[in-house]
């Protein structure tokens, strides 16, 4: 006697709403032993489509391997009026470049990052560590045993990614930039 999709949908919606971090399908399954996994997955997908279809202010997104209810970006002006906030300080281009190198080349050491960027990147790495966008992933077994860095779960959350495969490949950028430089 397992729960039907229509029964599950409102419960899942309530749970995802309550969770302060993206909540994974596995966590939801643990909370809901009444539902079998296939029905649960189907209910999540149905819920996501409901949000899409109805022209709502919220959407159900897959982020960092979990589900999260977010406001739609097109309404940000009104939300900011209410919150009385302005967009917070963004990352510098130096930090973003460093983050891009780490995201595509992880795990990677500081000297390797600097080789690609052509500049000292110690400060950018420190900024990214402080913002918890990257984390140490062990040490490289070479002379000096430098620390290897990789992106964190926080990186996925802050950049709205479900996983790293959602980033375009480096080859995509190659085609893009080649077109630009030859012209």
């Amino acid at each position: 006697m397992t729960m039907r999709i229509e029964e599950l949908k409102p419960i899942l919606e309530a749970l995802i709403f309550t969770a302060s971090e993206p909540i994974t399908e596995q966590e939801l399954a643990q909370i809901l032993p009444e539902a079998d996994r296939a029905t649960l997955a189907a209910a999540l997908e149905a819920l996501r489509r409901d949000y899409e279809a109805e022209g709502r202010g919220l959407e159900l997104r897959r982020i960092a391997g979990g589900y999260r209810i977010c406001t739609r970006p097109e309404h940000h002006e009104y939300i900011r009026r209410y919150l009385k906030t302005r967009p917070s300080a963004r990352l510098s281009m130096a930090a973003l470049e460093t983050l891009a190198v780490i995201a595509y080349k992880q795990p990677i050491t500081l000297p390797e990052i600097q080789e690609i960027r052509g500049v000292n990147s110690a400060r950018a790495v420190r900024t990214l560590l402080e913002k918890r966008l990257i984390e140490p992933k062990g040490r490289k077994p070479v002379v000096g045993r430098p620390i290897l860095y990789g992106t964190s779960r926080e990186f996925l959350i802050q950049f709205g990614l479900n996983d790293l495969s959602e980033l375009p490949t480096l080859e995509d950028f190659e085609e893009l930039t080649e077109g630009a430089s030859v012209s």
Binding site: S20, T71, R90, L96, A100, R117, T177
Partner: peptide
């Protein structure tokens, strides 16, 4: 230069993604 250019483009993509994420709010 070609390699650096790729990461520069990737950094710009990250920037636009962050831009979009800054416009979304969670509870």
């Amino acid at each position: 230069l070609l390699e650096y250019q790729k990461y520069k483009a990737a950094a710009e993509l990250l920037w636009s993604r962050a831009e979009r994420e800054q416009a979304t709010f969670t509870r």
